[in-house]
Design a protein around this nucleic acid. Structure first.
Lengths: 212, 212
DNA sequence: AGACAATATGCCACTGAGTGGCATTAGCTA
DNA sequence: TAGCTAATGCCACTCAGTGGCATATTGTCT
């Protein structure tokens, strides 16, 4: 916990984190739908009101780990000077952000994805959240590329592609490790999966029915 | 109304349609959040239970027109024999489906999109629904391409791209017509917007930071 | 036509997510 | 220590969505 922060902030972060941890644990144990919010806030000894000041919904707290990565990704893009092809640059930002996460984040993220894949409500919310990230991404890229037309189709598409590739990569990471593939469930495997998905984009575009 | 159907089915379709119409009207008039489900089912003179046998949520009934198109799109893909490049084929299915919709569908869809763009909950749900379509799309394509690996990255990406392009196209269609562009708000303009988005995909991929 | 089976509907009570208001507490500042 | 500010807790409330069961409506079979 960051000792530089004032006490009040640290405390707030602690409850935030405690909520996310308890949520992941409880949801994984009993199933997302079987756990009520009252149960969750009771476990953390916090009022429901406080919960909603930290997270907008039951779904959001379950995906805290995922949000941590995506925030780091957007932050990296915002920080980085862009030059050359855009999509590879976004891929690099994503892998860099992934590399920079804490070690225990990988564990948290793995459990998060395991939870998501078995919970329809979370599958949907995960997509919604990634789309919000896409919008933030485009908003960061616009000034960097000198594009003021908020409607530029190409830029929005690039954003969608990057997010799509990440989703596919993350999905495959989990699938791979479930069927005991060569790759383990670690950080390196995640990065490899995501890079693989990014790199498959040109092939995907060129896909043809006659020659599968 | 299809006279070939048995009476009971026709009646069911009538209430379904009445619900969607009333929803679009009420939501547009008073705002999505300001209309309760009780209000809606009261206007159609149907019980809340009946509503939920027809639509899974308040959001879903608002997007009935959009779902009609996407269903037709998937049906067209399922029907069509594929040969040659995949993405253009999907684009053709989408435009063909759009062309085949009733005339009053265009009106309904326009009002739907106007509603969506001003309602955060519907923006999100619209994305969720389009993602469900992406999954159905991939499931239709797999056997046609002789791909049994459910995890083929490329195929999933193609599905995502097609849906992304459609979303961008539909979004631009509305934006264009709001600022009184050359293109009107009609069916032809919608098709043009969507085709434009599909055709922008290669450029989007090739986008570069140095040469915007 | 009349009875029966199947299915759609209505009604009602209930759960649980999410919100607003207001009093209280805890951390910061002088 | 006193006082200010922001976070928290508590309570009552709305409303989406569900389950169960009785009722009505339609298709079918004799």
């Amino acid at each position: 916990m960051d000792r530089a922060l004032p006490l009040r902030e640290r405390k707030k972060l602690r409850t935030r984190r405690a909520l996310a941890d308890a949520a992941l644990r409880l949801f994984s144990e009993k199933g997302f739908d079987a756990v009520t919010l009252d149960e969750l806030v009771d476990a953390v000894e916090v009022s429901k009101r406080t919960f909603f000041r930290n997270y907008a919904s039951k779904e959001q707290v379950a995906l805290a780990a995922q949000a941590d990565l995506l925030d780091a990704f957007v932050a990296d893009v915002a920080r980085r000077k862009l030059h050359g092809p855009l999509l590879p640059a976004l891929r690099d930002s994503m892998t860099a952000a992934t590399r920079r996460m804490d070690d225990d984040w990988v564990e948290r993220f793995l459990r998060t994805r395991q939870l998501v894949v078995t919970t329809p409500a979370l599958i949907d919310y995960s997509i919604v959240e990634s789309m919000h990230v896409q919008r933030r991404l485009v908003r960061e890229l616009e000034p960097k590329l000198g594009i003021d037309r908020h409607e530029d189709v190409r830029l929005r598409l690039v954003g969608e592609f990057a997010i799509s590739a990440w989703r596919c990569g993350a999905k495959n990471w989990l699938a791979d490790q479930r069927e005991g593939e060569r790759r383990g469930g670690g950080r390196a495997a995640l990065i490899a999966s995501v890079e693989e998905a990014f790199d498959a984009i040109p092939e995907a575009l060129a896909m043809s029915a006659s020659a599968p």
